[in-house]
């Protein structure tokens, strides 16, 4: 591959929240070969969109929540059809759609009917027969509880719940919240993802926060946090709707704890690391007396060069 394209792809993947177009414009100017570039960076744009939970407005779908958006992620990717076209799933409206990774636009929405093969009975580890309908019920219960949680804690959040493809009784909950404020030179993104595994009774999650502040500078906060919870049996044996509420309550507690613990980390960094790197003022609590320091240094230099009158 053209090494210029390799560099361009690497820059794109490092884009801060909401600044992919700025990065892309810079890269276009630097490479100044739009034709090679556009084709070459498409895989990187796709990788970026999937990893960053890029949100898209799917035409024809109307969600009740103010953020009527869908998340583009690995979980939303439908198995590639025979003609090689990639399509994505909005699980809430059961709509499949095409997605352009450069323009970030959705197209050709179609009602999505899950695979009929899945409709047969399934045998699950804890001796319960689970039907396809059960799984649908669990997914939509988790979705409902997630949206309630989203409204309670995120200012501009989007959430999607997917049944994990190729697995039974496993669900992926994804949350993304973005705030872009270019006129005040900052942007931020919160991503969380949870794999709810009702075979193992576990919730495995990660939270990623990225903040960019760039007024006369470039300051970035980047955090990653992983959580793994074992679900109490009381949660697992509950009917789907109350199990979902309990799972989201656990997630709510964990995310709240994490956000509070970030405060402690900030405090520690400010009080220990920052102060340890550079004092606000010298021990004397006064600024330097520059004339005195200079005089002393020059004096020391003179006496050392003469070899006599050493002060020590």
């Amino acid at each position: 591959m053209d090494s210029r394209i390799g560099a361009a792809c690497s820059f794109i993947l490092q884009s801060p929240p909401g600044e992919i177009n700025d990065v892309l414009n810079d890269v276009r100017n630097i490479i100044s070969d739009d034709e090679t570039l556009e084709e070459g960076v498409l895989p990187a744009l796709k990788e970026y969109n999937l990893a960053q939970f890029t949100t898209v407005d799917v035409p024809g779908t109307e969600h009740q929540v103010r953020a009527s958006l869908s998340i583009i992620s690995e979980a939303a990717r439908l198995p590639t059809s025979e003609n090689g076209e990639e399509r994505w799933l909005d699980p809430r409206s059961k709509t499949s759609f095409g997605f352009n990774h450069l323009t970030l636009e959705a197209s050709d929405p179609q009602p999505f009917e899950p695979d009929a093969d899945a409709e047969e009975f399934r045998y699950v580890s804890n001796n319960i027969f689970l039907t396809f309908d059960d799984e649908t019920a669990t997914r939509s219960s988790l979705e409902k509880a997630s949206l309630t949680y989203l409204l309670a804690h995120f200012h501009d959040g989007v959430a999607s719940v997917f049944s994990k493809q190729g697995a039974q009784n496993q669900y992926l909950l994804q949350i993304v919240a973005n705030k872009y404020n270019p006129s005040n030179y900052w942007s931020g993104r919160w991503r969380s993802e949870y794999l709810v595994n009702l075979n193992e009774n576990t919730v495995e999650g990660k939270i990623l926060v990225n903040i960019h502040y760039y007024e006369q500078g470039n300051v970035q906060l980047s955090t990653n946090h992983t959580i793994s919870i074992t679900l109490p049996s009381a949660v697992v044996t509950s009917p789907p709707s109350s199990a979902a509420l309990k799972i989201l309550a656990l997630i709510e507690t964990e995310e709240g704890k994490y956000q509070t613990s970030l405060n402690d980390t900030y405090h520690e960094m400010s009080e220990k690391t920052f102060k340890g790197l550079r004092r606000a003022l010298p021990m004397t609590r006064q600024k330097l007396d520059w004339d005195k320091v200079l005089g002393y240094k020059l004096g020391a230099e003179l006496s050392s060069s003469k070899g006599a009158f050493s002060t020590s």
Binding site: D156, K179, W186, W190, V209, I211, Q259
Partner: peptide
Amino acid sequence: IVYDLRSV
């Protein structure tokens, strides 16, 4: 900004 994204 973190608190602008998520509220405790």
